[in-house]
Amino acid sequence: MLKVNGINVYYGSIHAIKDVSFEVHQGEIVTLIGANGAGKSTTLQTISGLLHSRTGSIEFLGQNLMGVPAFKIVSRGLAQVPEGRRIFLQMTVEENLEMGAYTQPNTTIAPGLERVYEQFPRLKERRRQIAGTLSGGEQQMLAMGRALMSGPKLLMLDEPSMGLAPILVEQIFEIIRKLHQAGTTILLVEQNAQAALSIADRGYVLETGKIVTTGTGAELLASPAIKKAYLGG
């Protein structure tokens, strides 16, 4: 479904992503794990066109995404929940969701809202509220709901657990699992390796811009090296 092949991304003279290649197949949950600064978010931002790779290729459903401007990516069926949620804080919850459906025909908005509210009843209660007044967990739900409004085939989540209390992290991962069961393919970037690997079909480990290990979620969870580096012994 998504094929990333040999991308190299630079911030000025800093070589942030070095020859990264990986694949996501239809129906999978794939996770990219790694420490802070390993290049996980950079990789996602390159796929969604906010950053650009100097080499390689990014292919989604057989179409080349390299050089496609960021605002044209979502209509290809690829939505991103950015790191730090990045919801529109001064807009209402419902307006945020409408923005998620910006590229969709207006007739899809009402059923889209219905679907998202069913998934996240909290958002329905707060639909008229300014998004900046939501709690951290609610903001994360809004960011996810917003991305789902475009009806993506592949959902990319960047650190959805960041800054959330353990109970909320559990909730968020439960929602990810449900979305996956409902047929959405998921690419998940996480520092919380334990949580990510336990729901993932496959995982890739990024270290200083390079992929160092790959395997199924269970394999990586059981690997002594991964345990030592990312799972607290």
Partner: peptide, 13 residues
């Protein structure tokens, strides 16, 4: 509010 997030929504900034 946020140009990058707007682009992710498909808005041509």
């Amino acid at each position: 509010e946020d140009k990058n997030a707007a682009q992710l929504m498909g808005i041509n900034v």
